[in-house]
């Protein structure tokens, strides 16, 4: 291996590691905002896979998919943070354990 190129699988492995760290944050953290940021981390990890495969296939389609993911993430962030604001207004709490009435 030379220093002038990186195997494609390294990018995919990085994507997998970031995705799993996103899952870990989603499961371990108790703060609604941090859980939401973990979801953004997972979306970013998937974007990296899209762009990597796009490079391999020499097609620009993967860039467009990751562009759409970004658009959806922006819309999701706007609505999700509005929901968090509403929950905080009603419950005065950001802990997800306090917002479990729909769980059972």
């Amino acid at each position: 291996m030379t220093f002038n190129s990186v195997p494609l699988s390294w990018y995919l492995m990085l994507s997998a590691i970031l995705f799993v760290l996103g899952i870990a944050g989603f499961l371990y953290r108790r703060n609604v905002i941090t859980v939401f940021m973990s979801i953004e981390l997972m979306l970013n990890a998937v974007n990296l896979s899209f762009v990597t495969f796009s490079y391999q296939l020499k097609q620009v389609d993967g860039h467009i998919f990751s562009f759409f993911v970004m658009v959806v993430a922006a819309a999701e962030a706007a609505v999700g943070l509005a929901i968090i604001l509403t929950v905080f207004k009603n419950r005065q709490s950001l802990r997800i354990d306090d917002v479990s009435s729909m769980k059972y």
Binding site: F36, E40, Y55, A77, L81
Partner: peptide, 25 residues
């Protein structure tokens, strides 16, 4: 990876707009 447009959009949309929204909240 040769994705110049996506790299710029990542900085502007994600690191710029979305994260500012998060920090604002």
């Amino acid at each position: 990876l040769g994705a110049e447009f996506i790299a710029a959009a990542q900085l502007v949309v994600y690191a710029g707009a979305i994260m500012v929204l998060f920090i604002f909240v």
